[in-house]
Design a protein around this nucleic acid. Structure first.
Length: 254
DNA sequence: ATGGCGCGCGCAGCGCGA
């Protein structure tokens, strides 16, 4: 089984690239973030024609998440139960035996801003919810844009980024809280080359200079981590014209 | 010195992302 996550930064703009990428990569499950599409305008027909069923929780202009799967997802859950939030950032569904959780974590804007405090509160609610989910679902995967670079090796220039949003210690502590639930960073289950990132700023030729961050992740419960065969970041999509600023991350489990 | 780029919205230029 191959699972992927991709922050597409507008599904409407990126749909042609997604439809080209799906038959090349042939994932069984794809979690999308920043669809920026209301549910009424979701391209369900085009994706169905490509062989994927879709579940989605979207809104106009901002945020929006979706789960595509060859086998239709069941028991969909939008949002974190008990955490009131207008922003469409979370969608969970069951595909086969796997509970798939698609997340688009808040950016946080700047350390000590209201958005930063919202980000930390959001992570706290996410962690409490996933702790319960893990009781019900031994095979659980959390895929998405976490907006956290967990370690300095996930940052192109740790000195320049030190203390800033996406790398600050409270954010990294929030990521560690997820790992403390038993969720493994799928990417780090395998030997990886240095300086591999999943996001690059559109400005100043950041991609060409590989000035990026690894902020898109796939977390795996123990039952899935023990079955993981490979995890990689697919940079090819970022090299195209009019790319998303994020690259897909893909994991294979048996 | 605080923008740069790309997106949505909507038709000018701003808010937002990371």
């Amino acid at each position: 089984m191959k699972l992927a996550t991709w922050n597409v930064n507008s599904l409407k703009i990126r749909l042609p690239q997604l439809l080209e990428w799906l038959p090349v990569e042939q994932p069984d499950v794809v979690c999308l973030q920043e669809t920026k599409t209301e549910n009424a305008g979701f391209p369900e027909v085009e994706l169905q024609a490509a062989g994927y069923a879709a579940l989605y929780s979207g809104q106009k202009t901002y945020n929006g998440v979706a789960i595509l799967s060859r086998q239709a997802g069941a028991q969909p859950q939008a949002g974190i139960p008990g955490f009131a939030d207008e922003q469409k950032r979370v969608l969970a569904a069951t595909v086969g035996e796997v509970r798939v959780v698609c997340i688009y974590a808040p950016n946080g804007q700047a350390v000590d801003s209201d958005k930063y405090r919202y980000k930390l509160a959001w992570y706290e609610a996410l962690t409490a919810w996933l702790k319960e989910e893990l009781v019900c679902w031994p095979k659980l995967a959390v895929l998405g844009d976490f907006n956290i670079a967990p370690e300095d090796r996930d940052v192109c220039d740790p000195v320049a980024w030190a203390g800033q949003v996406l790398v600050s210690e409270p954010e990294r502590a929030a990521f560690k809280q997820l790992q403390a639930l038993g969720l493994a960073d799928g990417f780090r289950l395998f030997e990886q080359a240095p300086k591999l990132y999943s996001w690059w700023d559109y400005r100043q030729l950041a991609f060409q200079k590989n000035q990026g961050l690894r902020i898109d992740h796939i977390l795996l419960s123990p039952a899935l981590a023990s079955r993981a065969k490979a995890c990689r970041i697919d940079k090819i999509a970022r090299k195209r014209e009019r790319p998303s600023d994020h690259a897909p991350v893909v994991v294979e489990v048996t």
